[in-house]
Design a protein around this nucleic acid. Structure first.
Lengths: 337, 337
DNA sequence: ACTGAAAATGTAACGGATTACATTTTACAA
DNA sequence: TTGTAAAATGTAATCCGTTACATTTTCAGT
């Protein structure tokens, strides 16, 4: 690969002139500029951006910490980040953490070792275990999607509590009074927020909270399937099932259908996220739509602002959500089965 | 951030000693080593890896060109790459190309500008348009999943033709003679290979090929839905539908069910990829399973070998596939509807 | 205590691009 | 033609860690 020096030699100028031809062409006379340009073409010279980055101290790379990209909601968010990053001249370094704090720390180290400018966290598994207390405070990081109450970082999130509340209210409005909830992993703040929304809605409707209606899940299809199976073995089975994400809901529907139940006639099922598959589920899934790509855009935009020192206080951006009613929810059956 | 020189000053040694303490501790006396280590801790010194990479000329980053990560098969492949890359000390730079050759070229440029060591392409959209002819031949690149016959790059792929053939044979063995095929994008070599396998199986069974049975798709849920709708308007409708990926199949099933058809009683549907959702579709989808994570592992492993000069000839690794029979396929109906 | 080899440590060049500052060239006015 | 400011170009320092080579220290053997 040609270097700036070779180009300079061929053009018969100094390296400074070559650099200026590229950076501020108006500062170079047209004649020289032509010679340099020709030399650049001749050699196929491309500036070694490692050198540029090294010298400038800016890598223009952002680390994205994500538990797994085999999750369609995250995939959409990352697509959004990708777009926004590309627009701003940044690349994305993908850090699949599998929820493993050690791997997380490994990726955070990329920033500490000047290999990346900042970090975006998609799931706040345990953000503080992953970094030295001292470095933590200064780390250029934003939290997206899942947010610990305590973080001092800019965040972009949903009002998960309100969203879960409105879904629960919707189910209540259909006449359901026993509403099962399939949770996400308990370690996730998001799970707690959605649970709180669910409880709030029940409380407002004066329906006592029954924790026999709570089922553990981990946002996977399988866990939804398992949770629904478990639910079916219980006496006084719920007439509606609110799942904290769509994968879980789709897994649950499968288990319910296998058991011979009709959706929504016998049981209503609702999800959260509105992934593409939800519209093609059988029946199409009622869910909460989130602007996933926008999450990505906003997160990148916030982080870049932090990097450019445009942000003093850590803002908290709340993205809008929308209740998408499809066919998986319906009026509560008049007689309990 | 502390530099090696600051550490050296604090420890009262030269920068070389600090470097050696980190790289080859046995070459430094225990006493000095202790002083240096303490200075490192004191300052929280971490080597600036941009400097290291710049000097070594190795970035230990790999670019992954992927049309979209919102595709579960790709997501699994990328997860696999991630693992393999991490094991070998590499990071992944995600390049979402949206099938856009310009964006593709943009990412390939990362290698040409020494920001990445190599490229893995997941969809051979048009690999040669994206790079200068001269640079192309030397580019450290591997092709995964989709492969142009002509490439001179190491590849890891499936025998798509054989896989499609065996799926078609399986459908034939169920008594289907009119088998529809929902294709992927025509630009994709993979589409052609699978089509060829389909044709081959028909030919072996002495069934004339009818291109009214071919439907265009683009690997999305929506395109499967649309293709199936279109199919339904045709006279002499097929009794089986082979879709070139699972998303398409799931979309198609939705359209068929909406039209009142029962699967597999009225129409059999088969997919390709075996994404997680396929097992939870209604009915669970018959498909071809691919070792997605292994694709990722192998691709990274090949690329790293190329980078280390361990590979002379471009190998072509064929991964195994498996016919997964579930409930979406069954015997051909005796009377056509 | 002295020699010599081995061990420990230091010095400085290097990688490629940028840029402050220095120098040369150009162009125009007097 | 000369002087001068502006424009063009060049020189060399800089970013930070690595490492070949140079120098100093240590220590066993005598």
């Amino acid at each position: 690969m040609a270097t700036i020096r070779q180009v300079a030699d061929i053009a018969g100028v100094s390296v400074a002139t070559v650099s200026r031809t590229l950076q501020q062409p108006e500062r170079v006379s047209p004649k020289t500029r032509a010679r340099v340009t020709s030399a650049i073409e001749q050699t196929g010279y491309k500036p070694n951006l490692m050198a540029v980055k090294f010298r400038s101290g800016k890598t223009h790379s952002l680390v994205v910490l994500v538990p797994t990209i085999a999750n369609l909601f995250f995939a959409r968010v990352i697509n959004g980040m990708q777009e926004a990053a590309a627009e701003r001249g940044y690349s994305l370094l993908l850090g699949n953490t599998q929820g493993n704090p050690e791997l997380e720390a490994e990726y955070v180290k990329l920033v500490q070792t000047s290999q990346a400018d900042g970090v975006i966290q998609l799931r706040a598994h345990n953000p503080f275990a992953s970094m030295n207390a001292d470095a933590g405070a200064l780390l250029p990081m934003v939290n997206a999607c899942e947010v610990l109450e305590s973080t001092a970082f800019p965040t972009v999130t949903l009002d998960n509590q309100r969203a879960a509340k409105s879904m629960t209210e919707y189910l209540l409005s259909l006449g359901h009074t026993r509403i099962g909830l399939i949770k996400g992993p308990n370690s996730s703040p998001l799970t707690q927020e959605r649970l709180r929304g669910y409880q709030q809605a029940l409380a407002s409707a004066n329906i006592p909270f029954d924790d026999a209606l709570l089922f553990d899940g981990d946002f996977t299809l399988q866990s939804g399937f398992d949770a629904a199976k478990k639910m079916l073995t219980q006496p006084d089975r719920p007439t509606a099932l609110f799942c904290e994400n769509d994968e879980t809901a789709i897994g649950a529907m499968q288990a319910l259908k296998q058991a011979g139940l009709r959706i929504p006639d016998d049981v209503s099922v609702a999800g959260f996220d509105d992934i593409a598959f939800s519209g093609y589920a059988d029946p199409p899934l009622t869910t909460i739509a989130q602007p996933a790509e926008e999450f990505g855009h906003t997160a990148v935009s916030l982080l870049v602002d932090v990097l450019n020192g445009k942000i003093k206080k850590a803002p908290r951006v709340i993205m809008p959500h929308e209740l998408v009613v499809r066919d998986s929810t319906g009026p509560a059956p008049t007689t309990c089965i």
